[in-house]
Amino acid sequence: MSNKKGEKLISVYWFAILVIVATGIVLMVNSFYGKTYDVRDVESKILADKVADCIYFGGKVNSLLLTPQGVFREDFRDRFMELCSLNFDVKGEFTPTPYYVEVQFFSFGDLRVMFETSVGNNNFKPDCNSKVENAEKLAKCNENQFYMKTNSNKIYLVKILSIVGKTDENTF
């Protein structure tokens, strides 16, 4: 009689262990596969590369950026998205775009801003200077710079700031 009781107790114990182990496995799988891949850093780098190639490629400045006299063209600013084949549209009519690009041209010697243009959602810009602990919930910023030479032998420092928001899709 007492042996049977013991066996019953052992069966309940085994069942409890089985449930605990199964729950543990579910938790493990969920904690790994439940997290999404955060590719915003790479996305912002690709965006910066694309803009840089649009401005200066193979040692040649985009002919639509400067006039033959070497003056920056205002219509490049207005048609920046179209001329650089950028498309920041996202699904959903009233969803703000999660991208932002800012390009600044500095004179070589005194580093004065000679021309600048920006497109996208500039609400993410403060995220770049924010130094909080949980930074993964902020937009990813990438600042790159390079020197370009125009046909009139002028040198400019080009700074490109590219930001990708998408905080809802990449973090939780």
Binding site: M28, S31, K140
Partner: peptide
């Protein structure tokens, strides 16, 4: 035995959660 099983489970849950945090391409 139960304590050992629980410790191993907690260790693996913690490990998989840490691994999950490395799913940031670029960093």
């Amino acid at each position: 035995a139960t304590i050992i099983i629980l410790v191993i489970l907690i260790f693996f849950i913690f490990g998989s959660s840490l691994l999950g945090k490395t799913k940031s391409v670029g960093t």
